[in-house]
Amino acid sequence: MRGWWQELAGLVLPGACAGCGAARTVLCAGCRRALDGVAAGPVRPSGRLRGLPPVYGAAVYEGAVRAVLLAHKERGALALAGPLGAALAAAVAAVAGVAAGGPDPAGVGGGAAGPEVVLVPVPSARRQVRARGHDPVRRTALAAAARLRRAGVAARVASVVRQVRPVADQAGLGARERRENLSGALGVGPGGVRAVAGARIVLVDDVITTGATLAEAARALAAAGAGPVAGAAVVAAPSGSFVRIQSSTRTEQHSCE
């Protein structure tokens, strides 16, 4: 119910841009461009984490991008799932090898041949989903899959990875502590292997920090026999983790329209 009221309010009430605060818009044109996925590229967290699949990120986690992600995740700005999904779709396309082309602003192209692409969201703790009133990663993944389908790519979401034991809050934990906290914490639910069989599996998350969550999700899928994982895709990653950042990468230094 909470999510329904938030979504309705976002449609009928004037607000401010989640990225820069510009008046009377959910997301201004400039901040939307920061999430267009044009600069999507490979990212590598520090530490060379074992078991981490190849990861692609769509944007740098700073400025407007960070503000939009936090507004969606922590403040329930559900209308932002669309722009965030467009960014994630570009990163998924890079991981899955979907042919790019045409005027598609997310850069996902269309008409790709081969197996369908299945987006597998990393699971959120049940207590966090209850507190937020929604699952931001799954919501963004659904928006990304819809974007890919509109571009002619066979794509869907399969939430087959789940928590099998409680974990501590990751905030404030370093790389080693996160690995220990998550070790053995994820598994694949009943019917999960069948749900992803024959597809290009792409793990998805909103932000990557150490990569521990994605590595644990990949381990869980492999242990269940649901592989191989083609890679992982995230909306945003820290600037220093990008293997190369194109000069066209835009952060908060844009003009709001």
Rank of each mutant, 00 (worst) to 15 (best):
V129N: 07
E180L: 15
A81S: 13
A195G: 13
V26L: 15
V157F: 00
G114M: 09
A215I: 09
V167Q: 01
D169S: 14
V243L: 14
A185I: 02
R194E: 15
T249S: 12
G227L: 08
A223D: 13
A125Y: 05
R179K: 10
N181T: 06
S46F: 12
A222L: 15
C31S: 04
T25K: 00
K73E: 03
R200I: 08
K73M: 09
L221S: 04
L173I: 11
G51C: 02
G110D: 10
G133W: 07
W4K: 08
R139M: 13
A93T: 04
A90Q: 04
V235I: 14
A99I: 10
T213M: 04
S239V: 15
A185P: 05
S124G: 05
L78Q: 00
C256G: 14
P121S: 08
L119K: 00
D205H: 01
G101E: 08
F242P: 11
F242D: 02
L69P: 12
G172E: 06
R156T: 12
V120K: 02
P53L: 05
R33P: 12
G110W: 10
S255L: 14
E177N: 04
A112L: 09
R178N: 07
R250K: 06
V12C: 08
H134G: 10
V188K: 03
A197I: 14
A94R: 15
A100S: 14
R75T: 07
V204D: 00
A81F: 01
E74H: 02
V202M: 07
R219C: 04
P123Y: 02
G85K: 04
C20P: 15
V157R: 06
A93K: 03
A113H: 05
P14G: 08
V161Y: 07
A155R: 06
A199I: 13
E216F: 08
A77R: 15
G63L: 06
E216T: 14
L52H: 04
L52D: 00
T209D: 09
T209P: 13
V92A: 09
V38Y: 06
R24I: 10
A79V: 15
V43S: 10
A171T: 13
S183Q: 09
D135Q: 02
S159F: 02
A215D: 08
V60M: 04
D205M: 08
A34W: 08
V108E: 01
